[in-house]
Each structure stands twice: as C-alpha cells, then as structure tokens.
Write a protein that binds this DNA or RNA. Structure first.
Lengths: 221, 221
DNA sequence: CGTTGTGAACTCATTCACAGCT
DNA sequence: AGCTGTGAATGAGTTCACAACG
C-alpha cells in the first residue's frame, strides 16, 4: 500500500539524503514569510554551495520555479517524501541508560514522525519502572512484544557486549532497521538496515581535524 | 631518505580517518595472538574491502610486510599517531543533561586519550552538584575557567536554542574544536573545527534506507 | 605460496557555467 | 533582472589487477 505518488528520477546517495535532512530542518524552521525560498538562502544556512542545493533538490522532481525559487510548503513535503518520513515510523528502544533517556526526551523525534512505542532493558531493577510515560519491559520479552507493538525500527543504547545479541533478537522479531549506539560493528542480515553512531569515533574525528588543520567540515552525522 | 618518523605522504580524507578509527578499534581489541594482522581480516571485521584497508594503511607509511601482514602493535601506534590521539586531549562538557551524563559515563573516551576536565551547565539547580566526580560550574564561568583548565576541546550537549551562544563562549575561551550534539548549524570562525552529531538526522537516515532498500551502509556517523 | 603496495581504470560526487524560464 | 535545471568539466574516492617481496 505504498501507493505511488512520488517517483524518484535517480537514486539519492546517502550523503545527499543527509543534506536533505539539513535542508528540511532549516526550511521547516523558517517563518513562512514570503513563501519563496532560494537555493542560495538554503545553501548559506547549512553551509554548502548553492549548486549543490539545486542538484539535490532537482533529484526530487521539478519543484522549483525559474526566476522565483522554491515554494517552502511544497519543498518540505517533497523532502519528507523523499526521505520516507511522510508517515509515522514505530520504533522500540532497548537500553534505558542515560543515553536512552536522552533520546526519549528529545522530542525532535516525534516531531519528525518517529514514535517510540516500547522500552526494554535487561537490568531487573529498571524493568517495571516508568520512564517518560512508558513501562520498561524485560529484554527477554523482545521477541513477542516487538511484533505485537508493530515496531519497524529499533534503537540500541545498550553496552557493547550485549549489542550483537540484542540486535539479533530485534531482527528475529521483525525489525527492519536498527540505529546502533554501541561501539561495535554489528553483523546482521543484509536486508536489515543499520546506522551506527559511535560517539567516541566522532571525538576522534574532531581531534584529527584540530591536529591537522585539515578539512573544514561543517557537519554530518 | 625520508629520515623521520611519521611524515604523511598524502592527506587523509575525512572518510579515511573514520575508517582508521574503526580499524583501530578492532585491532586494539583483538587478542595479541599471533602479532600479524592481514588487510583481509580487518576488512572482514569492519565491513569494507581489503583493497580499501591496504590503501588506507599505506597512507600511514610502510608498516606492512609483504607476504606476512601488519604487526598489530605497530599498527595501533601508527593509527593513533595519524589520528592525533597519541597524546591526551583535554575537553570540557557543557550541558549536564542525560546526554551529557551518558557521555561522561562512557569510559571509551578516557581509554582513547580524551580527558574531560570540566563540567558546565546553565541550570542553577545543577550548578554545584557533583556528577561523575566533577563539580558542575555555571556556564557563565566558561570564559575564565576553560582557559584555566587548559581545555582544547568542547563537547556541547545543551538545548538547540543556547548552542550558538555557548559555542561562541567556548571559542572565545580558546577552545579549538567543538563536538556539537545540538540540532543546529553552528556558525563559527573557520579556524575552529566542528563536528556535529545530529541524532534525529541519523534516525531519518535509517528510515530512508529502510524505505528505499537503497545502500547497505555498515556505519559512520 | 600469501600478502602488501600501487598504477590505472572506474565510479561517484561536486562545481562550473550557462541556457531557459519567469 | 533573478533563479532554476543541467550538460560538461573537474575532482575525490574506490576497486581492479598485478608486480614485488618475505
């Protein structure tokens, strides 16, 4: 039932998709003052070239008007569609430590269409407690509960040594994508999408850049 | 001849540096069983091609032995040197919320040579409290305290609306690099290095990949 | 043998520059 | 005039394939 509305002319690269997230964030956050947005204004806001912005947006279809710009309303809708966040995504979170709680409190998720629908932890002292309105369930319940909750995504904020096992349980329960914060390389079936955010590596990247005055980099994951 | 220790033949790309972090993590974590490591074994562990590993490591100098492999000891030292984490980096953390606390507890930082030397928060109820062995100081004290603490890096785990102001204070206090977790595009002097980790964007990337069975991606930031 | 290091080919991504529309 | 869309040029990054070496 994915219908069919938006046809993609060409595949978006991973990097392009990241930039679209950035464009979305700033355009959606702008006051709907005049309605028209130019590639230059977006470019300045996120720190890329205007040609880059046009190239990225052109990949979403013809939604700009020459001599005028882009309609911010349409633009937001088009980017959402291209990123696949024009519908709700149901996700469970495993590992209710500080990081897990930080993510729960981060309401940016819900605003972008992501709904956390279940919480799990292996620590018996946490199971049964209430966190941000959810009752923490035991990690052993993942197999049955995740499918019952109809969750498609899993967020993994558990220690490194249990990440592989938990991720396998999530996959077995039908999760199709995992956002992993444990500093390990998970081995999962090809069909399951995986995005790993390794906080220590990001700090190393920063140190690297400071040491060698290397790249300028404005952001990215 | 090349006389000296580690001169870089060519510049490392940002992407290459990220992969080096991954190599480092797995090689350092391996039991020093035989001493010799092959590009293939590293490649399998982190999910890239063996040619890629060789190309990356060759950029660090000649540290492999044909027909044998790389000495894991030397390899770890060389990668650390290339990434600039062969010495201690002093960092302060601003924003002692859940995310900030999660980072403090994450001992992977200290293990990699990063030392948090100060904590700041704007919330008066947090100032003066002890967190992970540090006394939280007011954010207003940043200008004087950061230089006194000789911190070179700043970790920003504050709400989006204060991130720009706090980052400017950090820069004024002499910080040379900022690891930013606020979902905003910071505008800083070119000389200050910036790495932004936007958690919501990572979730969007995951949704994007699940939606379009697009890339395989193993990780990155 | 097995494994590295690397020229060369190739793929992917970005920038340039301008035609084409408003 | 202003601004988009895009072919062409450029650049960056990755894979191929094999010579060189222990």
């Amino acid at each position: 039932m994915d219908g069919q509305p938006i046809e993609r002319g060409q595949r978006l690269s991973r990097a392009a998709a990241q930039r679209l997230s950035l464009y979305l964030r700033c355009v959606a956050g702008w006051p709907t003052d005049g309605e028209k947005v130019s590639s230059r204004s977006i470019a300045d806001a996120v720190g890329v070239s205007d040609a880059q912005v046009r190239r990225d947006l052109a990949a979403l279809g013809h939604l700009g008007q020459r001599g005028v710009g882009y309609d911010s309303q349409d633009l937001v809708a088009a980017i959402r569609g291209a990123l696949g966040i024009d519908r709700e995504w149901r996700a469970v979170l495993v590992g209710v430590g500080n990081l897990g709680r930080a993510l729960l409190k981060y309401h940016g998720f819900r605003a972008q269409g992501f709904a956390i629908v279940g919480l799990f932890d292996s620590d018996p002292s946490k199971v049964g407690t209430e966190v941000e309105g959810f009752t923490v369930e035991p990690v052993a319940a993942v197999p049955e509960r995740v499918s019952a909750l109809r969750a498609e995504l899993g967020v993994l904020t558990v220690p490194a040594d249990t990440a592989q096992a938990v991720s396998e349980a999530l996959v077995a329960a039908g999760v199709r994508g995992i956002l992993n914060f444990a500093p390990v390389v998970l081995k999962l079936p090809r069909a399951v999408r995986l995005v790993t955010v390794d906080l220590a590596i990001q700090l190393e990247q920063l140190a690297f850049q400071v040491r060698h005055g290397d790249a300028r980099t404005a952001d990215d994951d």
